[in-house]
Amino acid sequence: MISFERVSKRFERHDALRDVSLEIAREEMVFLTGHSGAGKSTMLRLLMLLDRATSGRLVVNGKDVATIRGRQVARYRQDFGFVFQDHQLLFDRSIFDNVALPLDIAGFHPRDVGRRVRAALDKVGLLGRESANPAVLSGGEQQRVGIARAVVARPKVLVADEPTGNLDPGLSAEIMALFEAFHRVGVTVIVASHDLALISRLRHRIITLKEGRLVGGVGR
């Protein structure tokens, strides 16, 4: 479903990714790990079209993403659910409105928006809090709102960049359990994390990067 073909990304002074080739299958769950600066975030940024590869090809759903330009970029991103380390919630609106945003963008009927938002909040254990402002939530709860927003439009692929970076081990395990639950219902899940202790307990492929090169987890 997602294949990196000899992808390199060079920033001004250093190579963030060097000649990376990798396949991620549909409905697979993979962890992306390595020290900070190893290239995890760069891979995700290429996948989200926040950056473009310097060389090589990135093919998603059979399509070379280099051909996706302009207005198509927004449409492409709608097929993904993104979870950010700093969760990127908007504090000028309620939890409900935060989670509803992808549905508004995709153009759902308000009635369906309500149902789906509550379903998503139920999945992350925050049903009943929808009218609160996300600012009053704890860090773990905020991250769960971020996850609800990422899955509310039922994307085929869920991408998370250090989703547990700011959480204590107990909360981190809970968040990972959530990702596994989505994986079990057929969502492709890609999680970048440097919490090796946590992810090695879970039985999924671990792709390891070091200084921009793949050093482990290439094969399945």
Binding site: A106, G107, F108, F182
Partner: peptide, 23 residues
């Protein structure tokens, strides 16, 4: 926390309808 997917058949409305609605 369960991850079952209810009413999965509900999708976005036609582009024009949602465009007007968002306006």
């Amino acid at each position: 926390m369960n991850a079952t997917v209810p009413d999965a058949q509900v999708g976005p409305r036609p582009a024009l309808v949602s465009w007007f609605d968002h306006h």
